[in-house]
């Protein structure tokens, strides 16, 4: 046992985020310098600061390196099939309206195979917090082109550089009707924590994009160095523009990164809309569903 460990045991203190994690699964599988762990660190702190009853918070992930998050949280969690965390989470939320349901997944999972689900959950203003770890690639499967790979970046399936226009994720979320839209990078640990805390208390579809390094399959392949070099790039090239027009926040290869809280508005959630509608149609014959939450 190391001296450090002995000191920790003697004081009976541990890393303050450990109670939010499944300790027996640490160390995790993510590569050295992968940013996903940093975002989980922020998520654990946001959960602590939110004051939520953790028995009423569930996390759902799809498949991918980011998809492993569900398996590391000390929460009720589900690791679904590729691209399907949003429909799974929608079902979970509607069957248990008292739950706060968080979707935590990768850019490929949420916007390539799962894109359609994202659009409709945002359109319906489903009460979910969706965290997308955008590492510009399919990390888990070997660095293939993602719909978020910047033009000019090399990937295993674009060996001469990408010529496809990538998605601008905050613009999609905004256009589809999300009530909360923010983008931060792994450099912005305090802002990520705050955004997650806001997202957890927001009613309706909240979307947080986090730009994160994949040293193994994105930055090294593009000769951009390791994880820490990418975080230094984020530090240097990020510009905070809260309330920015999401049309103007596209990303380019190693270019400026607009970060901030872009959207924070109110709109009727799907469940509230359903209850209001059927109350009007059927009057007192209709018993509102999940109202203990609705009237919170």
């Amino acid at each position: 046992m190391s001296t450090e460990q002995a000191v920790l045991d003697g004081l009976e203190i541990d890393n303050p985020v450990m109670p939010y994690l499944r300790k027996d699964r640490i160390p995790h599988i993510w590569c050295p310098g992968c940013g996903i762990g940093t975002t989980v660190n922020c998520f654990a702190r946001a959960l602590g600061e939110s004051g939520l009853d953790l028995d009423k918070v569930a996390v759902v992930s799809g498949i991918g390196c980011t998809g492993r998050v569900a398996g590391y949280m000390n929460l009720d969690s589900f690791h679904t099939t590729h691209g399907r965390p949003i429909p799974f989470a929608t079902g979970l939320k509607l069957a248990n309206p008292e739950l706060k349901v968080v979707v935590y997944s990768g850019d490929g999972d949420l916007f390539a195979i799962g894109g359609n689900h994202f659009f409709h959950a945002a359109r319906r203003n489903m009460d979910l917090m969706v965290v997308c770890i955008n590492n510009h690639t399919y990390g888990m499967t070997g660095g293939q082109l993602a719909p978020t790979t910047p033009m000019g970046a090399t990937q295993t399936t674009m060996p001469y550089g990408n010529f496809e226009q990538p998605f601008n994720l905050p613009f999609i979320a905004d256009a589809c009707g999300a009530v909360y839209v923010a983008r931060w990078t792994v450099y912005h640990v305090k802002q990520i924590t705050r955004a997650m805390k806001e997202g957890l208390s927001k009613r309706g579809f909240a979307f947080i994009e986090i730009i994160s390094p994949c040293p193994t399959l994105y930055s090294r392949r593009n000769r951009l160095g390791d994880g820490v070099d990418m975080v230094k790039y984020y530090k240097e090239k990020s510009v905070i523009k809260n309330g920015a027009n999401t049309k103007e926040v596209d990303l380019s290869f190693q270019g400026e990164i607009t970060v901030g809280k872009f959207v924070d508005r109110e709109r009727t959630t799907w469940l509230d809309g359903m209850n209001d509608h059927f109350s009007k149609v059927f009057g007192s014959k209709f018993k509102k569903y999940g109202v203990h939450h609705v009237e919170d």
């Binding site: 890393n15 985020v17 109670p19 993510w30 989980v40």
Partner: peptide
């Protein structure tokens, strides 16, 4: 801040004045 950045939960910092509170939280 080191604790907040660490992707592996391998480090954390404490102010000496907060050690007792952390022990209670734990």
């Amino acid at each position: 801040l080191c604790g907040l950045y660490c992707p592996d939960f391998a480090i954390f910092g404490v102010k000496y004045e907060d050690i007792e509170k952390l022990r209670q939280d734990a």
